[in-house]
């Protein structure tokens, strides 16, 4: 490879220059993407040493361990939370993206900017705002009590609903962008044609709009479902120790229990789940890139 690079400098031929241009990406990808991922796979089949470190012996134990009731329960709980979050995000985000696509060009641009600003803001800071709101005797409690809706503080912080709100809050923009970019391409005259042909506005929506924006919706689901199993810090700061995600489990195994092989096995499973979802998405919607990813 190095020899070839030298040749290129001498000849300055276009193929060679192109080769030199892609070389950094190839090297980087091999060293820091493919390498680590292969190591993860290898690691997941190795044994944990008694005290510290790893023994180079092949085992399936790490994968079997996932089915231990304690861990299995975490997986199921995390899955449930992810489903709840994703459904709620769909319900809130789909209309948002859809309505946004119907705005005129000037307002579309403004809306994009308005959503982008919080999206680019540190999610920790934004979550911190929710801590202030949810805290016992915090803003929400005071407001609800002042309006005589509740008698005493709800103490929402460190509860399951708080985590769900946090998740929705952080992941909602992904759904909005996905749906929006799909709905933006929608030819509205199709909807008008359907109405013209006798469809009610509801029928027109379900038979035309929803169908044609399905790729965006699905890509939004992929983009929100997967992270909502891994975003351990949301569960951490809004859920206390009450909500444990697969992400928390992996982090714990890595940082506290120092059981790296088990953490690797968990990651492999999560990774497979991710790939399956993306695969299904591609099969259904026939597109290569996720809508609205960039």
């Amino acid at each position: 490879m190095i020899k070839r690079a030298f040749e290129c400098f001498r000849q300055l031929n276009i193929n060679c220059v192109a080769f030199l241009a892609v070389l950094p990406l190839f090297v980087f990808t091999f060293m820091f993407v493919i390498g680590p991922l292969i190591y993860m796979l290898v690691l997941s089949f190795l044994q944990r040493a008694e005290v510290w470190g790893i023994v180079n012996k092949f085992t399936f134990k790490n994968y079997m361990d996932i089915f231990e009731p304690v861990y299995l329960k975490t997986f199921i709980e995390s899955f449930k939370l992810a489903i709840t979050t994703t459904i709620l995000i769909m319900i809130i985000g789909y209309p948002f993206g859809y309505f946004m696509a119907k705005l005129d060009a000037k307002w579309k641009k403004r809306m994009m900017l308005l959503i982008f600003i919080p999206f680019w803001t540190s999610s920790l800071i934004r979550l911190y705002g929710w801590i202030i709101i949810f805290r016992a005797n915090g803003i929400l409690d005071k407001l609800l009590m002042a309006l005589n809706i509740t008698e005493e503080p709800l103490k929402l912080l460190y509860t399951y609903p708080a985590v769900v709100v946090g998740m929705i809050y952080v992941l909602l923009p992904f759904m909005i962008f996905s749906v929006y970019s799909s709905a933006e391409k929608l030819d509205w005259s199709l909807v008008e044609a359907a109405r013209d042909l006798g469809a009610s506005s509801m029928q027109a929506f379900f038979t035309i709009s929803l169908k044609l924006t399905l790729p965006g919706l699905l890509s939004g689901v992929v983009l929100t479902f997967i992270p909502s199993m891994g975003l351990f810090f949301i569960a951490d700061i809004l859920g206390g120790n009450k909500v444990v995600l697969v992400g928390n489990l992996i982090q714990e195994q890595l940082m506290k229990a120092h059981n790296w092989p088990f953490a690797a096995a968990l990651s492999v499973v999560l990774m497979i789940l991710t790939s399956v979802m993306i695969y299904i998405y591609r099969r259904i919607s026939n597109v290569k890139e996720l809508e609205g990813l960039v």
């Binding site: 680590p36 190591y39 690691l43 982090q251 790296w260 999560l270 991710t274």
Partner: peptide, 19 residues
């Protein structure tokens, strides 16, 4: 090369730590 933004962050963190 585009995997790092496709896979969950937690996995990326974990593979980098071990690697």
């Amino acid at each position: 090369s585009t995997l790092p933004i496709m896979i969950p962050e937690i996995i990326l963190g974990m593979v980098f730590l071990t690697y």
